[in-house]
Design a binder for these strands. Sequence first.
DNA 1: TCTGGGGTCCTAGGACCC
DNA 2: TCTGGGGTCCTAGGACCC
Length: 283
Amino acid sequence: MDRYREESRLIMQIVARSGAAIEQMSVDEAYLDLSPFCQGNCADDSLRLALPIARQIKQSIRAERQLTASIGIASNKLLAKLAADHKKPDGLTVIEEAKKIQFLRALPVRALHGVGRVTAEQLNQARILTVGDLQDHAGDLRALVGSFGPILKRFALGEDDRPLDLSGDVKSISSENTFLRDTDDRRILRTTLRQQAADIADELQKKRLAAKSVQVRVRYSDFTTLTRQLTFEDSTTEAAAIYNFGCHLLARHRLVNRPLRLLGLGVSNLVPPGQQMLLPLKA
DNA sequence: TCTGGGGTCCTAGGACCC
DNA sequence: TCTGGGGTCCTAGGACCC
């Protein structure tokens, strides 16, 4: 895994040479905003101006890392991702504004960002199978998918105004383990929790953060999954404290009343370390 | 996919305060 | 004492993404 991370870092360095603003999504995926370098006479002209930059990135990755990369060029994140996935190992796909409706029509609804197993099932039951069906749907999608309705409609039409998230802010850090065999052996559970607390404390230190909430997660043999969390006034960076809160949560809610398939520990409510509590001001 | 691990966001209910 | 409304915080679960 560390090999992956290192490779990822090197490739992101190559990508960064484009000068574009970058939002890294995972070890092997990132969005680039090339709009400052690609101002054409019309939207599709601008997209075409991105082509040589994309070719250069692919070539550098191949020359320097002996790896292929798939790139999608489009006017927003939704379409760029679909374009990148269009041809997989070594692709370069442009979705032009003039052709986006047509490109989307035949795709299953599941292809759209935010449509997972459950939402796809909801839509399918209403006989909405493809993105084309969504485009043609006259009624209010809120009846089917709640507040996601208006966004889903826009996605179906290839419209997406989500900006790149360049902040790099982390909201939570967690670690979990699935046991080879379900267990309620306290020694095994304590050892696991202690290691997880140590890993989390390491990450907190690397990211220069402290946590104000601790959360445990258990999963039983029937796949029932429970989480319990605790928020405190002072923040912590210490493995021992995180471990203790984890033990406390497990005990207080009697979560180990049968063997566990999975045990997880996490922190959230992250703040700069050593931050003092703000005292309420009274006039 | 009889199901691994690390995340984010949304919703809904309850507690608490004014 | 009971009633009401609004706002905020915490908690838990679930859907989704990579």
